[in-house]
Design a protein around this nucleic acid. Structure first.
Lengths: 347, 347
DNA sequence: GGAAGTGACGTTAGCGCTACCTATACCTAT
DNA sequence: ATAGGTATAGGTAGCGCTAACGTCACTTCC
């Protein structure tokens, strides 16, 4: 009620607790960590004072002393608002949380320079590992020399000139499969609305589309391919343009969930136009039309990434004991896609 | 090419760099932080060695020495996969990132015990502040005594028996407004599909619904109210049940985006049934029906939360200089809702 | 020519913890 | 009784940094 201004008072240290409890700092340290070598009475007294003072361990001091990492895992994605990336982060969190570790976040907004800074910053913060969705093909800032033993796992895109584990979606296979379905339904003029070739996933999905057409000896027509899409609006515009051609496509494949929304807007009520998408569309069942889509479990990808990271950490800590291959082979986990179809409900 | 096994070698310290560059540790420290008191030649030499050794500052040691926090802000939400929460985190990140701070993440899965542990853990990690979406009404673990001056901002739900800043959505006003719109369209049998009363937002939205009915002297019928909804599936079941009543509702209000999806599935092609929802539905324009919904900017909420946090931190660091009110007033930022309507396109 | 700067460094100390060691007290077993 | 446990405690040192101060060479001005 009187003296102590709560905001001002210095945070109590372990020694403060010790003084107040009338024991040595070591006893407090032991009591707090539940170690043996403290009598029940001392332990109780210590915990009482801890409670009273609102004392909390100083993690910086602890990890400095122990020379360990920070028990943090960095997750660097391109844009967090996209559910794919937030689910990925969730999956990573679910796995590492069991080891008492936490996730620290970074958004690159597709800017390679920001990505480089972020990785650097995370390393300074002594993260134990990093999961990165690379925003470009330049992965040089994640080379062994720069990382100094901090493991990296790439997600969604494979490493370029880099020895790192990664978790991938079968972009090519998924795109090929859904395109093939459209062709099986009898479509011959199938359009592709995708992202710029510079994006790995976009390039792979485009390749899957091309191969599927090729396999059915359907020529790829440039009029039916748009690879400039970045968001819903541009996709809608591109699809609208195609549908106005004198010989419009009879089906459209949208290469991700953002583009899919735009394309569906462009198609509107013309439900005779075939439609397929890469990514899950949870609202598919509300639309009274046939939809084929490739879905994959982003959370599972995150879990795989987290597990690869933990494996590397375990290997490293065991490394002192038994000799191992001097250049560990990088592991690749490929997500299995699920191709689903929602058929129109004939009302 | 030879000796140094990259994974094994101890991380270089500042002293290692100093030794190698033939200067004192202080000069390295100064050079790295761009401080004055180092000649251009020395600085260049130091940076060269830093590059060569792949040296990185040890942040634990630094923040221990400086006695500052960790430059981390904890963001504790109930479920990260929900776009509302990931956007919230994105907003927080956007604001604090400008101060060189990072976001550290936590998921409670609506479990109050996990929330308590998480907050505790974040405090041990010496976060500079925390943004919490509380999962219950018990906020005692965030009291001044426990926080020891670490500011908290609550998001989405107001503090209970707690002096803390918060950012809120106008749950009551938004729900009242959309319900009113349904009534204005002539509906008299308006159903409510919501979450259990224990959830603050659910309770507020229900209250808004009731008040809107009351204002038009429409009685609240228990047959038309379901507050057991937790996800899409239960909402679909509840809505289906209501629509099978001998006197079914003519309109349904779904209290969040998950429930909305379920309700829309239940309604199916019956587009004469009025529909409103709390939360943005990006796919609204694809459905050939009238929809009224309340939307709010989760990212903006996150930014507001981040700003409140930074203000508190600034006040605290300035606190030494000029005297201030001994009990700072807690601030509340209420998001303005936008009520939008999507009208059916008459094809 | 000596007092008083000025810039470039080095030295010291200590942030808050905990691994490792030493020091008591109090038991056994010989 | 004395050596050898076993539990409980305290002492010491040092993790990797950097604020604060000390040192030294080299100006600059009266």
């Amino acid at each position: 009620m009187t003296a102590s201004a709560p905001g001002q008072s210095r945070r109590p240290t372990l020694s403060d607790v010790a003084r107040r409890a009338g024991v040595s700092p070591m006893s407090v340290s032991r009591a707090m960590r539940g170690e043996s070598g403290v009598s029940a009475a001392t332990r109780a007294k210590v915990l009482e004072v801890v409670e009273e003072l609102g004392y909390r361990l100083n993690d910086s001091a602890r990890s400095l002393k122990l020379g360990r990492g920070s028990d943090l895992v960095g997750v660097v994605v391109t844009h967090f608002a996209n559910p794919f990336y937030s689910r990925l982060a969730l999956g990573v969190e679910a796995v590492i949380e069991k080891r008492g570790m936490r996730v620290i976040l970074g958004n690159t907004e597709e800017d390679p320079e920001r990505e480089r800074e972020l990785v650097q910053n995370l390393l300074e913060r002594r993260v134990d590992g990093i999961v990165v969705v690379p925003s470009s093909y330049d992965h040089s800032h994640m080379k062994e020399q720069a990382m100094r033993g901090t493991p990296v796992v790439l997600a969604g895109r494979p490493p370029v000139a880099l020895d790192a584990d990664c978790v991938l979606v079968d972009d090519f296979g998924g795109a090929r499969e859904v395109t093939r379905r459209l062709l099986e339904e009898g479509h011959r003029r199938v359009a592709f609305i995708g992202t710029p070739p510079a994006a790995y996933t976009g390039a792979e999905r485009h390749r899957g589309y091309c191969v599927a057409l090729d396999e059915q000896s359907v020529p790829v027509t440039s009029d039916y391919v748009d690879r400039s899409g970045t968001d819903t609006v541009t996709a809608e515009a591109a699809a609208t343009r195609m549908l106005r051609l004198s010989t419009p496509p009879t089906a459209i494949f949208a290469a991700n969930n953002r583009l899919a929304l735009g394309v569906l807007r462009a198609i509107g009520p013309r439900d005779h136009i075939g439609f397929a998408a890469f990514d899950d569309l949870e609202y598919a069942s509300l639309l009274n039309r046939d939809i084929t889509f490739v879905s994959f479990d982003a959370e599972q990808m995150g879990r795989s990434a987290g597990e690869l990271l933990l494996q590397r950490l375990d290997e490293r800590s065991a490394g002192g004991r038994h000799m191992q291959a001097e250049r560990p082979v990088s592991r690749v986990v490929v997500q299995v896609n699920v191709v689903s179809q929602h058929a129109r409900s004939r009302v």
